[in-house]
Design a protein around this nucleic acid. Structure first.
Lengths: 345, 345
DNA sequence: CTGAAAGCGCTTACAG
DNA sequence: CTGAAAGCGCTTACAG
C-alpha cells in the first residue's frame, strides 16, 4: 500500500538497509548516498512505519497515563487537566506519545493496565493517583514495569517506587496552624475520599497541628466526602447542625471549597467574617470565587512534568535511582480567612 | 525475551499458525486443540504483542485525539475533560485505545497529526475544535484519512466532513430571544475566540434574534475574548464604561460568565436585578456560582461519545456516510436572568 | 561505506 | 482440522 523502505531503496538504487541507516543518520553512510536517498524519500513521500519500528526496537516511545476510576468525578476536577498539561509538555519535549486509559471502574482499569504492559503498547506508565492496596500498583511492581506515581506510595515496598508528590502532611499542618494563629480553635476538616493517600496526609497534618497546640481533635469536626462538588455542601450542613459549630474549615480541594462557599452563602453565613476557609490546589477558579479562596498551590503542572521526567529517565536508564521528588507548595493567602472574633462562646 | 506464539506452539505441540488461530478463536480449529493451546498460553503467561499484530493487520485500534493549540487555555475549561469523558467511554466499549496529541502551538499540532497518520500510529482522528483555514483539517482531508470533527466545519468541502455539533446558531438565537422577551433591548455579547466557528455561530444567532426584533445590532455591544477566565472580566469593564450600558449579556462560556459575575460583584452591580446573564455549556460549576447560571446545556459528553461513535463507524466501514450528527441542547433556566425593570432610560 | 540475510512477533492465503 | 511458508516494514549484526 504505502511507501516502504524498499521503494525508496529501489528508487535511490541502494539496499534497504542503507535507507534504514540514512533514516537513523548513521555516520557510516557517505554524504552522497544520504542525499540521494533523502531525495528519493522526499519524492516518494516516504514516512517510516511506526509499528514496524516498535516491533524491532521493542520500544514504543509512548507513555501510558492512568486516570483514577471515577473518571466522572476525576475529570470534573481541574486537577487532572492540569497534571495532563504538565505530562503533555514533558512528553512532547522528549518526543514521547501519550496513551490514555479509558476504564471506568477499578476492575476495568486494572485490565487495561495489564493489556498495556503485556501487549507492549507503552514503555512506561504514569499513575495519577495513589491509594492503599491498589491492584494496579502491585501488578506494576510485580512486573517490574517502569512506572511513576503521582502521589505518595503507601503499603509494601515504598522504597521501590518512583514517585512525585507534595509534602501534603506539612502543607495541611501549616494551613491549620495558620488558622490557629488567627485565633480559631474550633476547626473543621473536610477531607476527600479516604481511599486516597492524600486524604490521609491532609488529616494527619491537621491533627498534628491541633496536637501541638494542645487542642483536642474532635470526631465530629472531621468529615470525608467523595463528591468533589456536592461534598462540600453536605459537610457544611453537618457542621452547621452541631451545637458548637466550627469557626474555620480546612477543605481538601478548591472545588469542594466552592461548594462550601455556596452553601454558606445560602445559609446566610458570611465568609470570612463568620467562617474562615482554607483549601488546597489553587485551581484556576479559586481566584474567581467571591471571596477568592485562600488555598495551597501544590503546583499541579509541575507534578505532571516532573513525574513524566522521572518516568522517561527510568525508561532510558534502568540504573536511574532517584526514587522520589517532592514538589514545593505555596500558601496563597486570599480572602477567605479572618482573625476569629471573640464574641462567641 | 517475552513469551511468543512460538513458545506456546512448542509447548502445545502445534504450529504457530494454529496458535494464532486459537487466539482469533477460529471455528476451524478443533475444541481439543484449542483447549490444549489455551492451557499452554495460560501456563506460559502468553500475551499477544500488539505491535506485531498492528503491523500485519495494518490497523492499530487506536484513535488520535487532537486538543486545540492553546492547551493551557483549553485544559482549564471543563469542556475538554468532559468531551474526553465521552470519547473515553465510547472508545472503551469498542476496545479502542486513545492517543493524545501533545503539541502546544498550531505548528506543533500539525506536525504531530502528520506523524500520527504517516507513521500509522492511529486508525482515525477526532478533532476537538473547528476553525476556518485549519491546516490540520486540510491535511486530513487531502490524505483522506478517517477523522471526525467536534464542531461545525467551515470552508471548502463541508459536505465531505464527518462531524458532530450542536446547532449553536439556534441556541444563541433562542437565548437572545429569551432576554428580549424579558424586556431587555440593550443586550451585550461576549464571544470567545473569533477563530473558532462556534464563536461565529453564537454571534450569528445573537444577531438574528435582534434583527427579528428590529433591534439594531450595535458594534459596541459586541466583544470577543480568548481568555476564558479573564475575558469575561475585561468585557464587563468595556461595557460598563459605555454611556448606555447593556442590561443583559449573552456570554459564550460558563467560565467566562463566572468571570463576569465576579467583576460585576466587585463593581457592586447585582445579578440578576441589574444585569441578566445567559451563557453556554452548563459546565458542572455553573450550578455552584452565586447566583447559579442560566445557561445552555450543549451535552458535551454526548458530543464526545457520538463523535467517537461516528469515527469508529467510519473506520470500520468506508462506505458509511452519515456525515453529520446534531446533538440537541437544553436551555437551563437558573437565577441569572430577570425581567428588565423599566426605571431607566 | 554498503549489501545480503536474519529476525522482531504476528497473520493468512495456500495446501493437504 | 492443521502446517509450512511468505510477508507486514523495519533494524542490525555480519561480511566485505
Amino acid at each position: 500500500m504505502s511507501i516502504t523502505i524498499k521503494d525508496v531503496a529501489k528508487k535511490a538504487k541502494v539496499a534497504p538497509s542503507t535507507v534504514s541507516r540514512v533514516i537513523a543518520d548513521s555516520p557510516r553512510i557517505s554524504q552522497q548516498t544520504k542525499e540521494r536517498v533523502r531525495e528519493a524519500m522526499e519524492e516518494l513521500g516516504y514516512h517510516p512505519n511506526y509499528n514496524a519500528r516498535s516491533l524491532v526496537n521493542q520500544s514504543t516511545k509512548t507513555l501510558g497515563v492512568i486516570i483514577p476510576s471515577s473518571a466522572k468525578v476525576a475529570f470534573q476536577n481541574p486537577f487532572f487537566p492540569e497534571v495532563l498539561r504538565g505530562i503533555t509538555a514533558k512528553a512532547y519535549l522528549d518526543k514521547y506519545g501519550l496513551y490514555l486509559s479509558t476504564g471506568q471502574t477499578d476492575q476495568e482499569i486494572l485490565e487495561e493496565v495489564k493489556q498495556m504492559v503485556y501487549s507492549r503498547r507503552v514503555d512506561g506508565i504514569i499513575l495519577l493517583y495513589s491509594k492503599a492496596n491498589d491492584g494496579v500498583l502491585s501488578f506494576l511492581l510485580e512486573q517490574t514495569f517502569p512506572f511513576v506515581l503521582v502521589g505518595r506510595p503507601q503499603g509494601v515496598e515504598e522504597d521501590e517506587i518512583f514517585y512525585v508528590n507534595n509534602d501534603n502532611i506539612r502543607a495541611s499542618k501549616t494551613v491549620t496552624e495558620y488558622l490557629l494563629l488567627l485565633g480559631h480553635e474550633r476547626i473543621g476538616f473536610i477531607g476527600g475520599n479516604l481511599d486516597y493517600v492524600v486524604t490521609k496526609d491532609h488529616k494527619m497534618g491537621y491533627e498534628r497541628a491541633l496536637n501541638n497546640a494542645n487542642i483536642p481533635v474532635r470526631e465530629e469536626y472531621i468529615v470525608y466526602n467523595d463528591e468533589v462538588l456536592e461534598g462540600g455542601q453536605e459537610a457544611v450542613i453537618e457542621f452547621m447542625t452541631l451545637e458548637e459549630r466550627p469557626t474555620a474549615l480546612v477543605v481538601a480541594d478548591d472545588l469542594m471549597a466552592l461548594g462550601v462557599l455556596r452553601m454558606l452563602d445560602e445559609m446566610g453565613i458570611s465568609v470570612p467574617e463568620e467562617m474562615s476557609i482554607v483549601s488546597f490546589n489553587n485551581v484556576m477558579l479559586s481566584e474567581l470565587s467571591s471571596p477568592p479562596l485562600t488555598t495551597v498551590d501544590i503546583n499541579i503542572y509541575e507534578l505532571g512534568f516532573q513525574g513524566t521526567d522521572k518516568l522517561i529517565h527510568r525508561i532510558a536508564d534502568p540504573s536511574y535511582d532517584v526514587k522520589k521528588t517532592i514538589i514545593p507548595y505555596r500558601f496563597i493567602k486570599r480572602q477567605t480567612c479572618l482573625k476569629r472574633t471573640v464574641n462567641e462562646s
